[in-house]
Design a binder for these strands. Sequence first.
DNA 1: TTGTAAGCGTTATCAA
DNA 2: TTGATAACGCTTACAA
Lengths: 363, 363
Amino acid sequence: MKFEPVTIKQMARDLNLGISTVSRALHDSHEISEATKKRVVDYARKVNYIPNPIALSLRAKRNRSIGIVISQFNNPFCSQVVNGMESAFYKAGYQVSIVQTSESTEKEMKAIQYLSSRVDGLLVSISSETKSTEHLKDLYEKGMPIVFYDRICRDIPTHMTLSDNYRGAYEATRHLIGQGCRKIAFVGGAATQPIVQERRAGYLSALEDAGITVEDKWIHFLPKGGVHYVETEVAMERLLRLPRDKRPDGLLTAWDKVTADAYKYLRRHNIRMPEELALIGFSNFPLTDYVSPSLSVVQQQSEKLGEVAAGQLLALLQSKRKPLKYQTEVLMPEIIIRESSLKLKSKTEEQRAVSKIKGAKKR
Amino acid sequence: MKFEPVTIKQMARDLNLGISTVSRALHDSHEISEATKKRVVDYARKVNYIPNPIALSLRAKRNRSIGIVISQFNNPFCSQVVNGMESAFYKAGYQVSIVQTSESTEKEMKAIQYLSSRVDGLLVSISSETKSTEHLKDLYEKGMPIVFYDRICRDIPTHMTLSDNYRGAYEATRHLIGQGCRKIAFVGGAATQPIVQERRAGYLSALEDAGITVEDKWIHFLPKGGVHYVETEVAMERLLRLPRDKRPDGLLTAWDKVTADAYKYLRRHNIRMPEELALIGFSNFPLTDYVSPSLSVVQQQSEKLGEVAAGQLLALLQSKRKPLKYQTEVLMPEIIIRESSLKLKSKTEEQRAVSKIKGAKKR
DNA sequence: TTGTAAGCGTTATCAA
DNA sequence: TTGATAACGCTTACAA
């Protein structure tokens, strides 16, 4: 089965007109008589003529569309981001074409190659597996407007929008400390991910500032980034099997899926939150406020992030040449404290808990 | 800023070769000397030549890519479906380009026009606002392989894959009846949606078969399909303000977002489930098993649905002409009973509850 | 007012 | 073994 659309050439033959006459009539050119115009337009409607966008693109070297490279489609954070982008571009009259990399470098390269020349610009979030960014660098050097969002790429000088992962993790950890936790664990996604590293850095700083010494065994990364439940399960088992004095009383999960899976694990094994383990995690999942115990989260401004990144790309699309200065927009995630990490009721209790730690830095 | 890729023509000039020589060398043609081949290939690699997919498409009238038209990106059911499709097409060597219609007919038409000629086939789920399907019908008649999934279009004879919405709603309603509910309400998405209508039909049949007379006031549709919380809120308020003897004791929600919002409403207003109102709803949201009370759902086989639809489209792409017979694949959703609708502990209790209704049909 | 032809980047046919 | 040329569908400068 193959698509065989009506072309201008075909219509010209049918109507006994020149190709350019038909083209101009369809564009309502003033140099075509009303009679011919009507004849052409009516006929075009009758046969349901659709201009071939491929041919238009080839000629105009302009597509009026942009591409979004997304890691995991099936991830609320990602889809919220895309929603923000979509609405911004829709307003600007651009079509949006989305491709998924599923965290695979190979898919990412294919996707980018696929989109090159098909779109006027690219919004990219690097897949976690990706090491080299030569494919993107080269495209960028040839003038393709690219904006990075969320998982940025420092090698390529361009606009980017991301969350303040460091501070999100820092504040979440501080909150756990404030709740009296002293043995705070960290379960991230893939160790290779810069954003996971930043989150770990925030976590470490918060502990350091509070004068808490970190145990290596409290920190876990997940080889495949936590796509499957079993990865988180293994990490949780390792944490909870530590000897009593090392066993964590607080946990920061640094990846949406990992947060959900850690929560599931704790519920399945009847480990009470926050009494046995206080949990807070990065998450943009819906319904986290209705699970029981309700889940404390570091929630990114996902739609906003999408909108801001979209604005940056639109700016690149409109500017004649590469800008001299690039912006990096950083959005602060929201720390939402709920039952899963709330041990102490009052602020004063909290202050007392923190002040008990010796060697804590003042902020 | 504009993308200016390296072309064959440019390379030909640079290397002092003919255009076709370069093209053939890149395709490893036997009629090109090894020396020239190497020269060309090396140079192409050096300048990072990427063949222009637009030009290839225009020439070959073949894109090795398919388009997915999706209603709401930010909907777990949809993203799960797309995941299923994506992996199927990836295996078959197709690129997948996804566009979102946000339930708007205008966007849908633009999206389809955008994809026409850019892709070799289309997987379409009609947006809820859409009345006329002329734009699709015409495309299909010109030979574009189209497969409908989830929200199908009966006017166009082609393959389709969908859930058994009727039976899903029927069984869910039967379950509520089995739990002793007699005043069972129904909150759907948009009334115009065929799949919502089917769900209502299943709901009605189950009540009828049980000999229960339905009140009109128990049935609500949401003008915008329930995209915003407030729509569900209004419907819930209407239901719960009914006089005591008419006030429902059971509720079937027939749309993922509506289910989540109805649940939120009940929790926010401290209405106990299942005691005051037993809730079961269509939903593919994650975490429904961990909310409290845990949420009973009619869960569609979303990934499977995507895979099956993808298989159908691949079949169309491979066949020479329009097939004489079209398949309609129907997948049974899973009814998952959890706390929000579970009033009776044992099967026998349940049987007793049902047999109390007089005039109930035997099944 | 209408038609012819060139060109966008590519491949395929034909000729050299 | 290589190169010129036509064609894919469209727009546009130029010619009629």
